[in-house]
Design a protein around this nucleic acid. Structure first.
Lengths: 129, 129
DNA sequence: GTGGCTGCAAAATGTTTGCACGGAT
DNA sequence: ATCCGTGCAAACATTTTGCAGCCAC
Protein backbone atom coordinates (compact mmCIF):
# COMPACT_ATOMS: atom_id res chain seq x y z
CA UNK A 1 0.00 0.00 0.00
CA UNK A 2 3.00 2.25 -0.47
CA UNK A 3 2.52 5.37 -2.58
CA UNK A 4 4.81 5.89 -5.51
CA UNK A 5 6.13 9.18 -6.68
CA UNK A 6 5.72 8.92 -10.43
CA UNK A 7 6.62 11.45 -13.09
CA UNK A 8 2.91 11.99 -13.79
CA UNK A 9 2.17 12.81 -10.18
CA UNK A 10 5.01 15.31 -10.06
CA UNK A 11 3.76 16.95 -13.24
CA UNK A 12 0.24 17.23 -11.86
CA UNK A 13 1.46 18.79 -8.63
CA UNK A 14 3.71 21.18 -10.53
CA UNK A 15 0.83 22.20 -12.79
CA UNK A 16 -1.43 23.03 -9.84
CA UNK A 17 1.41 25.06 -8.38
CA UNK A 18 2.04 26.97 -11.61
CA UNK A 19 -1.61 27.56 -12.51
CA UNK A 20 -1.95 29.38 -9.23
CA UNK A 21 -5.51 30.47 -9.68
CA UNK A 22 -7.47 27.37 -8.73
CA UNK A 23 -7.43 25.34 -11.93
CA UNK A 24 -10.06 22.76 -12.75
CA UNK A 25 -9.01 19.18 -13.44
CA UNK A 26 -9.41 19.93 -17.14
CA UNK A 27 -7.02 22.89 -16.95
CA UNK A 28 -4.48 20.80 -15.07
CA UNK A 29 -4.81 18.15 -17.75
CA UNK A 30 -4.26 20.69 -20.55
CA UNK A 31 -1.17 22.03 -18.83
CA UNK A 32 0.39 18.64 -18.20
CA UNK A 33 -0.53 17.35 -21.65
CA UNK A 34 1.33 20.27 -23.23
CA UNK A 35 4.63 18.84 -21.98
CA UNK A 36 3.65 15.18 -21.72
CA UNK A 37 1.03 14.52 -24.43
CA UNK A 38 0.65 10.84 -23.65
CA UNK A 39 -0.86 11.41 -20.21
CA UNK A 40 -4.43 10.30 -19.72
CA UNK A 41 -7.13 12.43 -18.16
CA UNK A 42 -7.93 9.57 -15.80
CA UNK A 43 -4.38 9.72 -14.49
CA UNK A 44 -4.75 13.43 -13.81
CA UNK A 45 -7.93 12.77 -11.86
CA UNK A 46 -6.36 9.91 -9.94
CA UNK A 47 -3.32 11.98 -9.05
CA UNK A 48 -5.37 14.99 -8.02
CA UNK A 49 -7.34 12.73 -5.71
CA UNK A 50 -4.21 11.14 -4.36
CA UNK A 51 -2.54 14.50 -3.76
CA UNK A 52 -5.66 15.85 -2.07
CA UNK A 53 -5.75 12.78 0.15
CA UNK A 54 -2.17 13.45 1.19
CA UNK A 55 -2.90 17.11 1.83
CA UNK A 56 -0.56 18.35 -0.90
CA UNK A 57 -3.35 20.12 -2.78
CA UNK A 58 -6.77 21.18 -1.65
CA UNK A 59 -10.00 20.35 -3.41
CA UNK A 60 -12.34 23.31 -3.67
CA UNK A 61 -15.84 22.32 -4.70
CA UNK A 62 -17.69 25.09 -6.49
CA UNK A 63 -21.42 25.65 -6.79
CA UNK A 64 -22.57 24.63 -10.26
CA UNK A 65 -19.12 24.06 -11.63
CA UNK A 66 -16.29 21.60 -11.80
CA UNK A 67 -14.11 21.13 -8.74
CA UNK A 68 -11.01 23.25 -8.52
CA UNK A 69 -7.63 22.53 -7.00
CA UNK A 70 -5.61 24.81 -4.86
CA UNK A 71 -1.98 24.68 -3.90
CA UNK A 72 -2.57 26.73 -0.74
CA UNK A 73 -3.44 24.05 1.74
CA UNK A 74 -4.33 26.02 4.89
CA UNK A 75 -7.95 26.95 5.61
CA UNK A 76 -9.10 30.02 3.72
CA UNK A 77 -12.10 31.34 1.81
CA UNK A 78 -12.70 31.96 -1.88
CA UNK A 79 -14.32 34.47 -4.19
CA UNK A 80 -15.86 33.38 -7.46
CA UNK A 81 -16.52 35.86 -10.23
CA UNK A 82 -19.98 35.33 -11.66
CA UNK A 83 -18.84 36.84 -14.92
CA UNK A 84 -15.65 35.04 -15.94
CA UNK A 85 -15.76 32.17 -13.44
CA UNK A 86 -12.33 32.93 -12.07
CA UNK A 87 -11.71 31.95 -8.44
CA UNK A 88 -9.33 33.77 -6.13
CA UNK A 89 -8.51 33.58 -2.43
CA UNK A 90 -10.49 35.89 -0.16
CA UNK A 91 -8.73 38.17 2.31
CA UNK A 92 -11.11 37.27 5.16
CA UNK A 93 -9.51 35.03 7.80
CA UNK A 94 -10.96 31.64 8.71
CA UNK A 95 -13.33 31.87 11.68
CA UNK A 96 -12.89 28.80 13.91
CA UNK A 97 -15.42 30.16 16.36
CA UNK A 98 -18.25 29.47 13.91
CA UNK A 99 -17.47 25.77 14.01
CA UNK A 100 -17.45 25.67 17.81
CA UNK A 101 -20.68 27.62 18.08
CA UNK A 102 -22.50 25.54 15.51
CA UNK A 103 -21.26 22.37 17.15
CA UNK A 104 -22.66 23.49 20.48
CA UNK A 105 -26.01 24.50 19.05
CA UNK A 106 -26.66 21.48 16.86
CA UNK A 107 -25.04 18.41 18.37
CA UNK A 108 -23.17 17.82 15.12
CA UNK A 109 -19.46 17.32 15.32
CA UNK A 110 -18.26 20.06 12.97
CA UNK A 111 -14.85 19.61 11.42
CA UNK A 112 -14.72 22.69 9.19
CA UNK A 113 -16.66 24.97 6.91
CA UNK A 114 -16.36 26.30 3.38
CA UNK A 115 -17.19 29.86 2.46
CA UNK A 116 -17.47 31.15 -1.10
CA UNK A 117 -18.22 34.77 -1.95
CA UNK A 118 -19.95 35.43 -5.24
CA UNK A 119 -19.53 38.67 -7.10
CA UNK A 120 -18.02 40.43 -10.10
CA UNK A 121 -14.31 41.09 -10.52
CA UNK A 122 -13.24 44.61 -11.56
CA UNK A 123 -12.74 43.57 -15.19
CA UNK A 124 -16.18 41.97 -15.50
CA UNK A 125 -17.78 44.87 -13.72
CA UNK A 126 -16.39 47.26 -16.32
CA UNK A 127 -17.56 45.04 -19.13
CA UNK A 128 -21.16 45.42 -17.96
CA UNK A 129 -21.17 49.21 -17.86
CA UNK B 1 -41.82 35.21 -22.94
CA UNK B 2 -44.62 34.84 -20.44
CA UNK B 3 -44.23 32.11 -17.82
CA UNK B 4 -46.98 29.56 -17.50
CA UNK B 5 -48.18 28.00 -14.32
CA UNK B 6 -48.51 24.35 -15.25
CA UNK B 7 -49.63 21.45 -13.13
CA UNK B 8 -46.11 20.03 -13.28
CA UNK B 9 -44.57 23.22 -11.96
CA UNK B 10 -47.02 23.32 -9.06
CA UNK B 11 -46.25 19.72 -8.21
CA UNK B 12 -42.52 20.37 -8.22
CA UNK B 13 -42.87 23.37 -5.94
CA UNK B 14 -45.16 21.44 -3.62
CA UNK B 15 -42.66 18.56 -3.47
CA UNK B 16 -39.79 20.84 -2.48
CA UNK B 17 -42.02 22.33 0.18
CA UNK B 18 -43.01 18.95 1.58
CA UNK B 19 -39.57 17.35 1.43
CA UNK B 20 -38.36 20.08 3.71
CA UNK B 21 -34.84 18.82 4.14
CA UNK B 22 -33.11 20.01 1.00
CA UNK B 23 -34.04 17.33 -1.52
CA UNK B 24 -31.97 16.61 -4.60
CA UNK B 25 -33.57 16.84 -8.04
CA UNK B 26 -33.83 13.06 -8.02
CA UNK B 27 -35.75 13.07 -4.73
CA UNK B 28 -38.10 15.72 -6.02
CA UNK B 29 -38.64 13.64 -9.13
CA UNK B 30 -39.43 10.51 -7.06
CA UNK B 31 -41.90 12.44 -4.98
CA UNK B 32 -43.73 14.00 -7.92
CA UNK B 33 -43.69 10.76 -9.92
CA UNK B 34 -45.46 8.99 -7.05
CA UNK B 35 -48.58 11.05 -7.72
CA UNK B 36 -48.03 11.88 -11.37
CA UNK B 37 -46.11 8.96 -12.91
CA UNK B 38 -46.03 10.37 -16.42
CA UNK B 39 -43.80 13.31 -15.49
CA UNK B 40 -40.36 13.37 -17.03
CA UNK B 41 -37.17 14.00 -15.12
CA UNK B 42 -36.27 16.71 -17.62
CA UNK B 43 -39.42 18.56 -16.69
CA UNK B 44 -38.49 18.41 -13.03
CA UNK B 45 -35.09 19.88 -13.82
CA UNK B 46 -36.60 22.57 -16.03
CA UNK B 47 -39.12 23.52 -13.38
CA UNK B 48 -36.56 23.57 -10.59
CA UNK B 49 -34.46 25.92 -12.69
CA UNK B 50 -37.45 28.07 -13.49
CA UNK B 51 -38.54 28.25 -9.85
CA UNK B 52 -35.01 29.07 -8.73
CA UNK B 53 -34.86 31.84 -11.32
CA UNK B 54 -38.07 33.28 -9.93
CA UNK B 55 -36.79 33.04 -6.37
CA UNK B 56 -39.45 30.54 -5.29
CA UNK B 57 -36.88 27.91 -4.36
CA UNK B 58 -33.21 28.21 -3.66
CA UNK B 59 -30.52 26.13 -5.31
CA UNK B 60 -27.91 24.90 -2.85
CA UNK B 61 -24.86 23.52 -4.58
CA UNK B 62 -23.00 20.94 -2.52
CA UNK B 63 -19.35 19.93 -2.70
CA UNK B 64 -19.05 16.58 -4.48
CA UNK B 65 -22.78 15.93 -4.65
CA UNK B 66 -25.90 16.71 -6.58
CA UNK B 67 -27.48 20.13 -6.17
CA UNK B 68 -30.17 20.45 -3.56
CA UNK B 69 -33.24 22.64 -3.43
CA UNK B 70 -34.51 24.57 -0.50
CA UNK B 71 -37.87 26.14 0.09
CA UNK B 72 -36.46 28.63 2.62
CA UNK B 73 -35.50 31.44 0.35
CA UNK B 74 -33.86 33.93 2.70
CA UNK B 75 -30.07 33.89 3.19
CA UNK B 76 -28.89 31.22 5.59
CA UNK B 77 -26.13 28.66 6.00
CA UNK B 78 -26.08 24.87 5.81
CA UNK B 79 -24.56 21.86 7.52
CA UNK B 80 -23.80 18.71 5.61
CA UNK B 81 -23.29 15.42 7.38
CA UNK B 82 -20.23 13.66 6.00
CA UNK B 83 -21.72 10.33 7.06
CA UNK B 84 -25.26 10.21 5.69
CA UNK B 85 -25.15 13.19 3.33
CA UNK B 86 -28.12 14.86 4.93
CA UNK B 87 -28.22 18.66 4.76
CA UNK B 88 -29.88 20.86 7.34
CA UNK B 89 -30.04 24.59 7.99
CA UNK B 90 -27.39 26.01 10.32
CA UNK B 91 -28.38 28.17 13.29
CA UNK B 92 -25.69 30.78 12.56
CA UNK B 93 -27.09 34.04 11.17
CA UNK B 94 -26.01 35.44 7.81
CA UNK B 95 -23.14 37.91 8.19
CA UNK B 96 -23.60 40.77 5.72
CA UNK B 97 -20.52 42.51 7.06
CA UNK B 98 -18.29 39.88 5.45
CA UNK B 99 -19.56 40.89 2.02
CA UNK B 100 -18.94 44.58 2.63
CA UNK B 101 -15.46 43.98 4.02
CA UNK B 102 -14.44 41.67 1.21
CA UNK B 103 -15.79 44.13 -1.34
CA UNK B 104 -13.69 46.92 0.13
CA UNK B 105 -10.54 44.85 0.25
CA UNK B 106 -10.71 43.28 -3.18
CA UNK B 107 -12.45 45.62 -5.60
CA UNK B 108 -14.94 42.86 -6.44
CA UNK B 109 -18.61 43.70 -6.23
CA UNK B 110 -19.77 41.01 -3.82
CA UNK B 111 -23.43 40.07 -3.95
CA UNK B 112 -23.50 37.27 -1.39
CA UNK B 113 -21.67 34.30 0.04
CA UNK B 114 -22.39 30.64 0.70
CA UNK B 115 -21.26 28.87 3.84
CA UNK B 116 -21.40 25.12 4.37
CA UNK B 117 -20.32 23.41 7.56
CA UNK B 118 -19.11 19.85 7.31
CA UNK B 119 -19.40 17.40 10.16
CA UNK B 120 -21.14 14.36 11.57
CA UNK B 121 -24.72 14.34 12.74
CA UNK B 122 -25.46 12.75 16.16
CA UNK B 123 -26.73 9.53 14.56
CA UNK B 124 -23.67 9.08 12.36
CA UNK B 125 -21.37 9.96 15.20
CA UNK B 126 -22.83 7.16 17.28
CA UNK B 127 -22.51 4.72 14.42
CA UNK B 128 -18.75 5.26 14.37
CA UNK B 129 -18.20 4.60 18.03
C1' DG C 1 -54.19 30.04 -32.66
C1' DT C 2 -49.62 30.41 -30.90
C1' DG C 3 -45.73 29.78 -28.36
C1' DG C 4 -44.20 28.07 -24.22
C1' DC C 5 -44.25 23.44 -21.81
C1' DT C 6 -44.04 18.49 -21.84
C1' DG C 7 -42.16 13.82 -22.58
C1' DC C 8 -38.84 11.18 -24.59
C1' DA C 9 -34.32 10.14 -25.91
C1' DA C 10 -29.89 11.62 -26.90
C1' DA C 11 -26.09 14.61 -25.80
C1' DA C 12 -23.13 17.05 -22.76
C1' DT C 13 -20.42 17.39 -18.53
C1' DG C 14 -17.45 15.89 -15.00
C1' DT C 15 -15.57 12.05 -12.82
C1' DT C 16 -14.71 7.14 -11.78
C1' DT C 17 -13.64 2.38 -12.91
C1' DG C 18 -12.29 -2.23 -15.24
C1' DC C 19 -8.62 -4.10 -17.56
C1' DA C 20 -4.13 -5.40 -19.42
C1' DC C 21 0.44 -3.90 -19.43
C1' DG C 22 4.69 -1.58 -18.14
C1' DG C 23 7.83 0.10 -14.60
C1' DA C 24 9.43 0.98 -10.05
C1' DT C 25 10.84 -1.34 -5.84
C1' DA D 1 8.68 -11.09 -8.76
C1' DT D 2 5.45 -8.07 -6.99
C1' DC D 3 1.90 -4.94 -7.38
C1' DC D 4 1.11 -0.07 -8.03
C1' DG D 5 0.32 3.33 -11.54
C1' DT D 6 -0.72 4.14 -16.29
C1' DG D 7 -3.46 4.60 -20.60
C1' DC D 8 -7.46 3.55 -22.85
C1' DA D 9 -12.26 3.09 -23.22
C1' DA D 10 -16.42 2.35 -21.17
C1' DA D 11 -19.36 3.27 -17.29
C1' DC D 12 -21.43 6.50 -14.25
C1' DA D 13 -24.00 10.42 -12.34
C1' DT D 14 -26.05 14.67 -13.02
C1' DT D 15 -27.99 17.98 -15.89
C1' DT D 16 -29.13 19.96 -20.43
C1' DT D 17 -30.98 19.94 -25.06
C1' DG D 18 -33.35 18.78 -29.71
C1' DC D 19 -37.66 17.69 -31.29
C1' DA D 20 -42.58 16.75 -32.14
C1' DG D 21 -46.89 17.25 -30.17
C1' DC D 22 -49.90 19.32 -26.53
C1' DC D 23 -52.04 22.64 -23.62
C1' DA D 24 -52.60 26.92 -21.17
C1' DC D 25 -53.18 31.54 -22.37
Amino acid sequence: MEKRNTVQKQLVLQAVRELQCHPTAEEVYQRVAARHPSISKATVYRNLNSLAEDGLVRRVAMPDAADRFDFTVGPHYHIKCAGCGRVIDAPAAYMPRLDAETEKETGFRISRHDLVFEGLCPACREKRA
